[in-house]
């Protein structure tokens, strides 16, 4: 393997996991932009998504379908999981955050940690504390270019993530609800004065963010083939770092931040040591907070009077 091959291989691996980080980071950023709330239970929604995926797979195996049918069943699994995590996100917002809407900002942050523990422990009790094997769901094929290997799963993860991001972008940019979300992020009181129902839009923000995290959860399981009830903690923190890296509240920023973080992590794992992999994300978070606290794409908010 030439040094270039090694480099390209790390890019490919980093890009794949970066896409998953980006999907989770989008949830942090959308919710923060609209509700000014860091939903620290978001990583757990992602983790629950992976378990819902496993549950869906197990249920489907009880049905009389051959492995050939899996290409058709895969979209169904995604649909099932994304619907359930979206619902879970909306429920969490309704009961854990909405009653605290007017409370000091520390209160919902602490509640978020409580929700995190609740979800982690619920999954631990239901599925057990041990690692669970997660199937790849599709038959893995390796494609080689010189010495760089790309699997069809990596292509699928990258492609599907991009599609989800494109759908999100279109929704935010062109639909009535999307415009209302941006208006709310811009000036909540003025949005109220235009007849926008704030609670409804915040619910939609949680719904979208949680659906994306659910999709990320399944892909995470398919990629690593093992899931655990505390996976959401680390993945959530990394995705949060990615959102801060891109500029919290900024949607393209979360996409760029996630991908960038994945690639940097891949580089670190490839060139330094894979045992230090997890350190890079937080090292980057510290650097960003020190030198560019508004993130790569975020702008300092200047309010005109």
């Amino acid at each position: 393997m030439t040094p270039l091959d090694v480099f390209l291989q790390q890019i490919v691996n980093g890009l794949t996991i970066g896409m998953i980080y980006a999907l989770i980071a989008l949830g942090y950023t959308i919710v923060y932009g609209i509700a000014q709330l860091i939903n620290f239970a978001h990583g757990e929604i992602f983790m629950v998504g992976a378990y819902f995926g496993l549950l869906a797979y197990t249920l489907i195996q009880l049905l009389p379908v051959g492995s050939v049918g899996f290409l058709f069943i895969l979209p169904l699994i995604f649909l099932f999981v994304m619907t359930l995590t979206a619902l879970l996100g909306v429920i969490v917002e309704r009961f854990a955050y909405r009653p605290l809407r007017e409370a000091p900002r520390l209160a919902p942050l602490i509640t978020a940690i409580g929700v995190s523990f609740l979800l982690q422990n619920a999954v631990m009790i239901l599925f057990g504390p041990a690692d669970k094997r997660f199937p790849s769901l599709i038959e893995i094929h390796k494609l080689s270019f010189h010495h760089v290997t790309i699997t069809n799963l990596q292509i699928m993860i990258t492609g599907f993530s991009l599609i989800l991001m494109l759908v999100l972008h279109t929704f935010i940019k062109y639909t009535r609800m999307g415009k209302a979300m941006r208006a709310l992020a811009d000036d909540r009181e003025a949005a109220c004065l235009m007849g926008i129902n704030v609670n409804q839009i915040i619910s939609i923000a949680f719904l979208i963010g949680s659906a994306l995290a659910g999709a990320g959860g399944i892909m995470f399981g398919m990629y690593y083939n093992t899931i655990n009830f505390h996976d959401g903690y680390l993945a959530g923190l990394k995705a949060f770092s990615a959102a801060v890296l891109g500029g919290i509240g900024n949607i393209p920023g979360a996409m760029v931040g996630g991908v960038l973080l994945g690639i940097l992590e891949g580089m670190g794992a490839g060139y330094i040591s894979s045992e230090w992999k997890n350190v890079f994300a937080f090292f980057i978070l510290i650097l960003i907070l020190l030198f560019r606290p508004h993130g790569l794409l975020g702008s300092r908010v200047v309010k005109k009077v």
Binding site: R176, K179, A180, R182, A183, A185, D186, D187, E189, A190, A191, L193, M194, I196, K304
Partner: peptide, 15 residues
């Protein structure tokens, strides 16, 4: 209190 990060037309749409 116009929505400063949205376009003029989007502001009207939100009206």
């Amino acid at each position: 209190r116009i929505f400063s990060r949205l376009t003029v037309e989007e502001n009207l749409d939100l009206g």
